[in-house]
Design a protein around this nucleic acid. Structure first.
Lengths: 210, 210
DNA sequence: TTAGCATAAATTGGCGCCAATTTTGGATCA
DNA sequence: TGATCCAAAATTGGCGCCAATTTATGCTAA
């Protein structure tokens, strides 16, 4: 019983510091290029020094922060070339799965996607940039999951984090967001119609201007 | 001067424990499924406890070892499905770059690749399985580097480690190795001739039976 | 006034101890 | 004889201290 209590307490606090820092990097709270001082993080997230260090090491492994020995860790700023390369990788992976996505999608899946796309639309007006960002993520996650390759889904999820470090807070222009919205529906329609070429094209454009 | 001495000493020992463990996993010294006790590793690699733990955490992040809380870490055994999924990802990435590889390859590059392929051939007879494995890696690394997308090269290098955990020591049959050899030359020839379709086909087959 | 330097403050990062948990081995009882 | 339970050994994992390095500050000298 005491044990159970502990488990529950642990599970409640089971949100790893790594995820918290990651989230703050992605929502732009921790700006690209800024130094992540261990003391600050320790206080901000109410955790111990070793926890902070483990989190920073993990994020450095994923290339979300950069480690300079004896200087510390700072939020990674991908240069233009790297960003372009990552986009290219994503295009390769996601368009490569277009056929399977279209093949595997049931009518229920299509409807679920349409719903997620609508949710994105709704949040353009009513939601915060962060909510919008998360709705976008949810849509793409659901979409890609249809390919049936769970390792690939994990991989893309991981990779996607590398490009979208900064942009969330000051997320591009209204025009672009609405363009994104249109492309979402374009993708859903392409899947519903089984037009894989159109799907590939939409995905490709979508990633490029992400 | 004292400083310089230290630097040198550090650089000499700059081979991270993570890489040592990784190497031993890939060469099959540390068998898939086996438990990695911190005390053993500490002694084996002559390093401290925190170093071991950092290394294990990193390898767990890369999904090369699996972590069971309060039980420890054990070498990851990919099941059939996961292995197939990873292969599919590699095929997507590497064949997707075939055009660029063929386009970017100078005659010098082609010659270098041919040399690496020959080196592989030579080691079939004269070398150890590990040398063979490394020659194979070198060939593929050089090949993929021609695509010009360094992020992708890093990614594939990382991904490749996930499949070839066990097989190195008892590496498939002689017939398969010789088949690999032929495919290497096939790829080189396809690049030299600019036949991207043939290149894609060869890469695809090669990965599938890797 | 500015450049250079030395000292002090702040920060990083290595290391070992100890508590918590799990596993093993053995003893007791049905 | 076998199963259950308890205790001891082994292992994991959290935490804090201190040394090493870097950065900031203020002082001195040209």
């Amino acid at each position: 019983m005491n044990k159970v209590k502990q488990r529950e307490a642990n599970n409640a606090t089971a949100v790893d510091v790594t995820d918290l820092i990651l989230h703050d990097i992605q929502t732009g709270v921790l700006a690209p290029g800024s130094w992540l001082k261990q003391i600050d993080l320790e206080q901000r997230y109410q955790c111990t020094r070793p926890e902070v260090r483990r989190a920073l090491d993990r994020l450095a492994q994923r290339r979300l922060v950069e480690h300079v020995p004896n200087r510390g860790y700072h939020v990674f700023e991908p240069d233009g070339r790297q960003a372009a390369e990552v986009s290219e990788i994503r295009i390769l992976l996601e368009t490569g799965m277009a056929d399977k996505i279209a093949a595997n999608a049931s009518t229920a899946d299509v409807e679920a996607l349409r719903e997620l796309a609508r949710r994105f639309d709704k949040l353009i007006l009513e939601g915060t940039p962060i909510e919008l960002y998360e709705a976008n993520l949810a849509f793409h996650y659901r979409l890609l999951s249809l390919c049936g390759n769970s390792e690939l889904v994990k991989l893309v999820t991981e990779i996607r984090q590398r490009t979208s470090s900064a942009p969330v807070s000051q997320w591009k222009t209204r025009a672009r967001i609405e363009q994104s919205s249109r492309e979402h529906h374009e993708m859903v329609n392409a899947i519903a119609a089984g037009e894989t070429a159109a799907l590939k094209d939409a995905i490709s454009r979508h990633i490029r201007q992400d």
